[in-house]
Design a protein around this nucleic acid. Structure first.
Length: 460
RNA sequence: GCCAGGAUGGCCGAACGGUAAGGCGCACGCUUGGAGAGCGUGUUCCCUCACGGGAUUCUGGGUUCAAAUCCCAGUCCUGGCGCCA
């Protein structure tokens, strides 16, 4: 949510933000008019109430003095005032509600360093890493979804059977690889100064609103009890779409001390997303699923430090891929593709060499977004009531929030299965992960289970 | 799930229908040779250029001229009982 003062004092910047972010359906002049009228009514209501308070005070005095008749007269006047007051305040409340609703619809203002552009084609690549001397690839590279099934380490069919499409089993070394990645990432980020938090997996509507998932993305969430299109209130529960929700809301409506900042939390959790309608070759396999694991990084910082911290956060996230020795690139997201709440955002995309896509790198394969790191400025903080007190004697101010996926796990698994694939169909375990796999160097796969494998000729 | 108690400013804590005592911490000012003590102001939100005003005793309703106080509903916390991976 934007500051009302920004709206009033710099409407042109707000107008610019709406335009370059491509937000539609907003009549800013209308919003400004509502604000204007609300302020007038507010002033009017305040002075009416002032008068009424005076009279009420007087009634008390008269009653104590025993002047019942004069008291009655004042009571009458007070009643009259109450009527006009109610009328004015009701209109003011209506307008303020409209104003708040409108403020929720206004996007965050992009930082001046953000490239202006319409869509993903206008994002600017700012870095590319690991392509100077890449590993020698298997020929051909088998896509992870085929290899995963062949090796019996990812089971899409049985996942669909027990939960539905978009859910899958990881089996044997597949599951162990996932655990290893989780532990590796958590250890790395702890090294970088992060404090672990294991959050609630269910979050209430108030939290979803605090981080900005609601009201826009209700249809993307999994509701616990009740259908998504039924009315919900603050206490209804949802499965978290990202640990950003519980962790950012952790200090909601609190005032932190200057000494507390910066706070760096990392949170491992499963994430649940409906991803309605997202099916096809681009999302096939372990790329866009309904449940996936992620280690999320959340920072709470002093306002003046947030843009510098964003660069630090980006390096912290990149370090995961560097240590895994997976080639990747970094994109500076343009205004039209950066999202509603962000002031500045980078995407980190890992190289998955199996499937050639038109917008992939020249040497083949494709880019998979594994992390996006964002600075929200005070946009989320204002929405969630996250404040800090710089000096004990000063009033509290909104702090700044940032987050970054410390790399989404499934796509990292995809990159490993494809990039570290060997000609014999096995997969070499990246060196940094071996300690987490009891020293295992190669994933060779497992025998299939069940009669269907016999029919397919994969088992005698 | 049942029963009981509770929720007041940054913190502690009164008031229990008449318009939120008192204390503590912190900051600034006055005072002082200096320190301490003392005094004053500030340490929530909103409107206003400002003066000033309004709101705020967990939340939402209600009664009343007037609600922290009385009534109803809810949330959370504490304790006891029950259930339980």
């Amino acid at each position: 949510m934007l500051d009302r003062d920004v709206l009033r004092e710099e409407p042109e910047r707000v107008r610019w933000a709406i335009e370059v972010k491509g937000v539609e359906g907003i009549d800013l002049d209308q919003v400004l008019a509502i604000d204007e009228e609300w302020r007038e009514l507010k002033a009017e209501g305040d002075s009416l109430r002032h008068e009424r308070n005076r009279i009420s005070e007087k009634i008390g005095e008269l009653k104590r003095a025993g002047d019942e008749q004069a008291a009655q007269e004042h009571i009458q006047r007070s009643g009259e005032l109450k009527e006009s007051l109610e009328e004015v305040e009701q209109r003011a409340d209506t307008l303020e509600a409209e104003l708040d609703a409108a403020l929720f619809e206004l996007p965050n203002i992009p930082h001046e360093s953000v490239p202006v552009g319409e869509d993903e084609t206008d994002n600017v690549e700012v870095d590319r890493w690991g392509f100077d001397a890449p590993r020698e690839l298997s020929d051909p590279v088998i896509p992870h979804y085929d290899l995963g099934e062949e090796l019996e380490i990812i089971d899409f069919e049985r996942g669909a059977k027990v939960a539905g499409g978009g859910f899958q089993f990881l089996k044997g070394d597949g599951a162990r690889l996932e655990y290893a990645l989780i532990q590796f990432m958590l250890d790395l980020h702890r090294e970088q100064g992060y404090t672990d938090v294991f959050p609630p997996i269910a979050v209430n509507s108030a939290s979803m609103r605090g981080t900005g998932q609601f009201p826009k993305f209700v249809e993307d969430a999994y509701r616990i009890g009740g259908a998504n299109d039924e009315p919900y209130d603050d206490s209804d529960l949802w499965l978290l779409p990202t640990a950003e929700v519980p962790v950012t809301n952790m200090y909601r409506d609190e005032i932190l001390l200057d000494d507390d900042l910066p706070i760096k939390h990392q949170a491992f959790s499963p994430n649940f997303r409906r991803e309605a309608g997202e099916h096809g070759t681009e999302t096939r396999g372990y790329v866009r699923v309904h449940q996936f694991n992620k280690v999320e990084l959340v920072n709470f910082v002093r306002p003046e430090e947030s843009f510098e911290r964003l660069e630090g956060l980006r390096e912290e996230a990149e370090e995961v891929l560097k240590r895994l020795e997976l080639p990747y690139r970094v994109l500076h997201m343009c205004t039209g593709d950066m999202g509603f709440q962000q002031a500045k955002k980078y995407d980190i995309e890992v190289w998955a060499p199996a499937d050639d896509m038109p917008d992939g790198p020249e040497i083949g394969g494709r880019w998979l977004e594994v992390s996006s790191v964002s600075n929200f400025g005070d946009f989320q903080a204002r929405r969630a009531g996250l404040r800090y007190r710089a000096e004990r004697h000063e009033s509290a101010d909104y702090l700044h929030t940032l987050n970054g996926s410390g790399i989404a796990l499934p796509r990292t698994v995809v990159a490993i299965l494809e990039y570290y694939q060997n000609d014999d169909g096995t997969v070499t375990v990246p060196e940094v992960l071996r300690p987490y796999l009891d020293g295992q160097e190669v994933i060779e796969g497992h025998d299939p289970v069940g009669e269907s494998a016999v029919g397919a000729g994969r088992k005698a």
